[in-house]
């Protein structure tokens, strides 16, 4: 029975002949292999070329550990803050009508359209030695540029859109009926947000946070401008890779790069796992 059915399917009007299909699939696979898999594999290959000992050593030397710590720290501040900003912005845009809403929506997208280098530069222009905001902090001991605060600021700026962009369409599609129902039942604003709005978008939110985190850890351009590249102090993982590479320390550079690549693979895995569940949650919401 199934043989009959599949036989019919292969003759259906929208299907190419077997040879054409094979050719197309082979082409796509070859492309994937050449441009994605081979480079990725070569990262791990280069990292482990001099043996596992060198690999571990490269990752455990003090500067490398400092870079990993700094990256985790910067992401650890930027991601939760952008989680809060993103949810607040999405909530405002999706659930309320106000003047300047279009402008706000455009502004949320700004970090995506601006070159990361410019994103870094604006903080240098603001807080650098001759920056207009430098005077504000001149009396205090706080240093922003070429220090941790600058890195965190640049990371927040660059990763700002991820959570908001993920939530706005989802919240808009869900409308405000659920919230209105909760309010009519006597819930206050906070209870409504916590018990109704947030659970409705939880998978979308997690998805946005994941993407935000991946970018926060991998950001190079903006962070590079504000960091100052002080080894062991203001070097994040991507910057550390660049320094090592420029010093012809390929094994160490690729070792650090392999950590970043693993991180990306992990994010991708979680992302596709979520997409399955997130997709279900969405289609469930369609059923109502």
């Amino acid at each position: 029975m199934s043989a009959v059915l599949s036989g019919k399917a292969s003759h259906s009007a929208v299907t190419e002949s077997a040879s054409v299909r094979r050719l197309l699939i082979a082409g796509a696979l070859l492309f994937l292999l050449l441009f994605l898999l081979l480079p990725l594999m070569s990262v791990f290959f280069e990292a482990l070329r001099n043996g596992i000992g060198t690999y571990v050593e490269a990752l455990t030397e003090p500067d490398a550990i400092a870079a990993i710590k700094l990256t985790l720290f910067a992401a650890g501040i930027a991601v939760p803050l952008n989680l809060v900003f993103g949810v607040a912005a999405a909530w405002a845009v999706a659930k309320f009508e106000f003047r300047g809403k279009t402008l706000l929506t455009t502004l949320i997208d700004l970090p995506f359209s601006v070159s990361p280098v410019v994103s870094g530069l604006i903080y240098v222009l603001m807080f650098g030695a001759s920056g207009w905001a430098a005077g504000l902090i001149a009396d205090t001991n706080i240093q922003i540029i070429f220090a941790l605060p600058g890195i965190v600021l640049a990371t927040i700026f660059v990763t700002f859109p991820f959570v908001a962009r993920e939530l706005i369409p989802l919240m808009q599609e869900q409308g405000t009926d659920d919230e209105q129902a909760a309010l009519s039942l006597g819930a206050n604003g906070w209870q409504t947000f916590w018990h109704v709005t947030l659970p409705n978008v939880r998978w979308g939110l997690l998805y946005g946070v994941l993407l935000c985190n991946a970018r926060a850890m991998g950001e190079f351009g903006a962070v590079s401008v504000v960091s100052g590249h002080i080894r062991g102090e203001t070097n994040t993982m991507p910057l550390h890779v660049e320094i090592l590479y420029n010093e012809y320390n390929f094994a160490a550079a690729f070792a650090m790069a392999s950590v970043l690549a693993s991180l990306a693979l992990l994010t991708l895995g979680l992302k596709s796992l979520l997409e399955t569940r997130h997709g279900e949650a969405l289609s469930q919401s369609h059923k109502h």
Binding site: D178, Q180, A181, S184, H195, P199
Partner: peptide, 13 residues
């Protein structure tokens, strides 16, 4: 007020 919506607006979770 008891308000009933056309599309029910039940809390899915």
């Amino acid at each position: 007020i008891g308000f009933v919506f056309q599309h029910y607006a039940l809390f899915k979770h």
